[in-house]
Structures are given as C-alpha cells and as structure tokens.
Design a protein around this nucleic acid. Structure first.
Lengths: 343, 343
DNA sequence: TTGTAGGCGTTATCAA
DNA sequence: TTGATAACGCCTACAA
C-alpha cells in the first residue's frame, strides 16, 4: 500500500508565491484584501489560491497573531435539547464578529471540564462560553485572568449572562399554589457549585406562603432514566407523598410521568408534574407538559456580544434578555384531595 | 479601565527554561518525559511548569509537528439524542489513542458542513469523523486526499463504518407485515446525497411481499415539529391512509403520535407507528415506542479505530459492530381492519 | 506596489 | 545528559 495521499505536504503561501512569481508577503496581503496590492496581482493570486486548493494554516496564523478567532463552547451534555437554541444563538451572533465556535462536550464531569478548558486554552481561543459549569467559582475567577470567560445560566462568576433565574421557577410555584397544592416536591439537578436558583426560588416561594420546608420532598436527578425512576419510587413511598412535583427539567419530568404511569399513578389526576426548559417534545408527550420556557437563543447571542466586549476592553453593557415564561399545558391540575391531614 | 489581564503574555517554555536555568529544548524533553533527561531536572521543571501555570501552545506544536492530535467531528444536529452515544463511543476510544475531539455542528446545512470541514482542515486535524453528511460523495472523495475521513451511517464513501443499514429497517417492515399490515407509510429524512438505506429496505420489503410501491405513502421529514404535523395531516387526508407508518426517527414518531392524538386518531388502535434510533425517551412516551436500536456507541468506537488505522498507513480491518435490534413496545399493533378494499 | 527580514512557541537534529 | 540551531507557515514592520 503506497503512502496515503494525505501525508503529502499541503499548499502554502510560498507555493502560491512561487507560482505567481511574487514574494510570500505579497500573497499574504493579496489574500487579506490589503489595499497595498495591485488589483491585477490580487486577482491572479486569488485565482491561483483557489485553483491550488490553498487552506490557510491556522496554527501558523495563531502563532503570530497570538489569537485564533476561535471561541470555545464548553457544554456539559450536548444532547440536552436545551442547548440547541443556545448554540444556535451563539453561532448566529459569532458570524457577525468573525468568530468561529468549537464545541467540547464534558458530559457533566468536572475533570473533563477542566481538560476542555485547557484544550481551548492551548488552542489560544479568544474566549470561552460556559453554560452550567461544574467547576467552582474560584476556578473560573482565576481562569478569567487568562482568557475572557462568559457563563450562561450561572450568576456567581465574574462575567455571565442569565435571565431572571428565579422568576421562571417562581412562576411554577405560584401556578401550583394557585391550583391548590401545598405539598410540593422538588427535584434538584446534579449538585453543582452554583447557587441553585431553582432551589432558592422553591424555598422562597414556600416561605412566602408560610409552608415549612420538608427535606423529604427534595430529590436529586443525575440526568439518567434510572434516576428519574428511582426518584419516582422514593416519592411514592413517602408517608405523605407530594401532590405536585417541580421536576429538574423536561427530560426528568417526562421520565417521571412514565414511571408514575407504570405504577398506576395518573398525571395530573393523582399528581401534578411541572418541567423546565420547554424542549421540543414537551408539548408532544401525554399529557403535554406544563413547563418553563427559557430564552436560550437570546442568551446565546448575548453571551457572544458580552465576550466580544470583554475581548475589546469595552465595558460590557448589562445584557438584556427576555423573561422566562410559564407554559401551562396539561401535566398540572388541582390536587386530588386538598390539604389532606395524615392520621 | 486598565488593560484586561488576559492581554498579558502567557508563560512559555522559554520562561520555564529561564527559571530553571536550562535550555528550552531541555524543558521540552522534560515535559514529554523523555528518558534523555536527569530525573532531578525533570522534576524541577515539572514543578516550575505547574507553579507558573504553563499551558502548551498548540499552535506552535501543530506548526512543527504538522499535526494537532485533534479529530474533527462534523455533526448535522447535535441535539439529536441519537448522537449522544456516538460521541461517547468516539471520545472513549479517542483517549486511548491520545486524540482530542472537537465538535462542529452544521445544523444540517451543506454550506455550513463545508465550512466546518475547512475549519478543521485549517486546524490541521489528524482526521475527520462525519456521521450522516450532507455533502456529496464526490466532495468527500476529493477531501479524502487531504485528510483521512471516516463516515458513520453512510456507505457510499471511501471509508466508513456502519452496521447493517438495511437490516434494522427490514426488521421493522417484517414486524409490521406480521401484525397484518400491508399499507405501510414511510417517512424519509431530509433528502441527502447518500443511498437512503431505510428507503431501500422499505422498497425491498414491499417487493418481497409483492406489494406495489405507492408514492403517496412516502413523506419527508425535515427535523421540525411542524414537519411532523404536516406529514400527519397529509397522511390522514389520503383516500386510503396507511394502517402503519415507519417514521424517520423517534423524534418524528413521537411528534406524529401526538399530532394523530390531536386529531382523534389512536395509536396503535387506529394506526401503528414505528420509530428508529431508540432514544432515551422512546420508552417513556405514551404509548411506548416500537423502534430500532442502533449500536451508536460501537460505531463511534470503530470510527476512531478506523481513523487511527488510516492515519498510520495500516489497512483498516473491516469494522465489526453489532446488528441493529428491533425493540417492540406498544406503538404498533394489528391493523384495525385488515385488507380493507376501497370502493 | 512589492520585497526583505525577523519573529511567534515549539520541537527534532545534531553537536558537545 | 544538555545546549545550539534551524525550521514549521504566516504576518508585520520597514525598506526599496
């Protein structure tokens, strides 16, 4: 077997220079549309470059420019539908600033997140966008000295864009209260280092109604189906199960509804379930999910703008994003028995 | 506002060399655990590097090595749950070969796919993994001269790993036949340049049973909710609607089931729906989905191995992956009225 | 309008 | 065991 074709040297500006009978520096100028080059020369070189299949070597460029025009996107779970709009917002805004996006999926593991950050650092990215990070606030504060970092959906770090993190959850709680629920379960996400705004909203809402916080009603979701199943089991074994549950996200909510049905418990007749995120499938399941719609696309756009400002020494304006919205569908309803007192 | 901290020069190998009173080349050797360096020196340098927060400059490395240790993953839609296991398989295998994965989401747009490829080319990746590409066979054949490219789930390109692409779909068709269906709808994906193995299996299965191919029963799904809705509408307006539908994938199937229910049509009582991929939620919806389970994780692993072989001039062994499996749940059943003849 | 020269950070090769 | 040197591909002064 002969040497594979791809071991052959790729064409560089020198090759083009030779072919065009000019100096490499002229090729550089021509390729970046510098005015300091004769139109005829520019066209000749452009033609040659296309013809010869020239692809610039980013490594060389990055080396001399000390930056790559790249932005690293560090996400914990790329298949969370939640991130689709985020990524779209980011990319749409990135093209406007001549920035390219590179994604690294950390699968929610802290050490992997660090590795991803280091890879991007080594790649000399112009900035990092980090939604829902695993690493500590301190880590990111220090990192911020090396490269601009903007967080999404986390508000304890130096630079972040987030919408009213508490508002969405408060809406859910209020909705459940209005339906007549008072014993409300809450499913947290994997214990992260952030401030857990949902949890905060949950407790605040409880307090405002004068309802005692009951740790038995708090569950933890790790992103897997099994986890949703387990939570459902625990929940039903309680002496006094909740009449409504505020799930961590829609995937969790959908899985719980299924697990409940498996055990003969109906939603929302026997128990109400509210989700979070409003993923594409949220309206398609049975019953359609009551959930919180989050402005991910706008958050994505804003994060790039924010990053751009940071990178250019401008004082970034406080980002403006829409408020989250409650989407009431059919997975929530009045409690079966109001204020049932045990005993 | 003073200059942001991140404009300050990062620490290089030279800085370490100076601090350790050695030559830069010694630092290089020490950092890569070369045996040709005194243990004491090695430790001293390692300590210094950690202390000073040294991050290697990949641009420089790539420049001299002419390769980056990076593999580009070009995916059409990162939020298709389908890709979760693929990516996991790829990453798990990549670490074994000291390869890092970078992802670029093309959102199913051909021009974006080309840009992604070019970015990776400029980045001097060691190889490309491209599941379900939009670009033509010819494009990839030419590209293959520049860099090793392995395709997943596409079998018309020079290098690919895929399992029995026809088998999974044949199983679905057989299952539907056995239930008594003969008028079976089929939902294609966005018309790609590939061979459409599902479509092929569909037609072959029909022929084998002596059933005429009816173009009215073929629909096209573009990935959106609206598309699933529209298909459902078209389907029901047919003079003689199908008694079963083989959906493009699970997302499509779930959305169609919902759209059918909205119109008062029950699944599987009135119509059977089979999906493809067996995503996490497939078993959680109502009714749980009959679908095809695809060995994505293994395909991911194999694609990296294949790439590695290619990059090292080895003749890649024909990759072995498990056969797809039919998962029979509750969205399929006997047709309501068997062999109803119109008129 | 174009060419010359030097350097970006790292590594491989050769010499010491 | 370590140091010196040249080179990777490109870009930016500066000179012509």
């Amino acid at each position: 077997m002969s040497k594979p074709a791809w071991e052959s040297r790729r064409v560089t500006i020198k090759d083009i220079a030779k072919a065009a009978n000019v100096d490499p520096s002229t090729v550089t100028r021509a390729l970046k549309d510098s005015p300091r080059v004769k139109p005829a020369t520019r066209e000749k070189i452009a033609g040659l470059a296309a013809e010869m299949g020239y692809v610039p070597n980013m490594a060389a460029r990055t080396l001399v420019n000390r930056k790559s025009g790249l932005v690293g996107l560090v996400i914990p779970d790329m298949t969370n539908p939640f991130f689709r709009d985020l990524a779209k917002g980011i990319e749409d805004e990135a093209v406007k600033h001549d920035l390219r996006i590179l994604i690294n999926d950390t699968r929610g593991v802290e050490s992997t997140e660090r590795e991803a950050v280091n890879l991007f650092l080594a790649l000399k990215v112009d900035g990092l966008i980090v939604p829902m990070a695993r690493c500590t606030q301190q880590y990111y504060e220090e990192l911020n000295a090396a490269v601009p970092v903007v967080h999404v959906n986390r508000d304890d770090t130096p630079h972040h864009v987030s919408c009213d993190t508490v508002e969405g959850s408060s809406l859910v709680m209020q909705h459940l209260f209005e339906l007549g629920h008072s014993r409300i379960g809450f499913v947290r996400g994997p214990a992260g280092p952030g401030r857990e705004p949902k949890m905060h909203a949950y407790r605040t809402a409880l307090e405002a109604r004068g309802i005692d916080y009951d740790p038995d009603l708090i569950f933890t979701f790790d992103g897997t189906l099994e986890s949703s199943n387990a939570i459902t089991g625990q929940l039903l074994e309680l002496d006094e199960p909740p009449t409504a549950v505020f799930a961590h996200n829609d995937v969790n909510a959908i899985a719980m509804i299924h697990a409940l049905r498996d055990r003969g418990v109906r939603v929302p007749d026997d128990i109400s379930i509210a989700g979070h995120d409003d993923i594409q499938l949220a309206g398609c399941v049975d019953p359609p999910l009551t959930t919180v719609q989050w402005p991910m696309y706008e958050l994505g756009q804003q994060s790039v703008r924010y990053l751009y400002s940071l990178g250019h020494g401008q004082d970034p304006r406080e980002p403006q994003v829409p408020q989250p919205k409650l989407v009431i569908r059919e997975s929530t309803g009045n409690p079966r028995v109001a204020r049932q007192v045990p005993g």
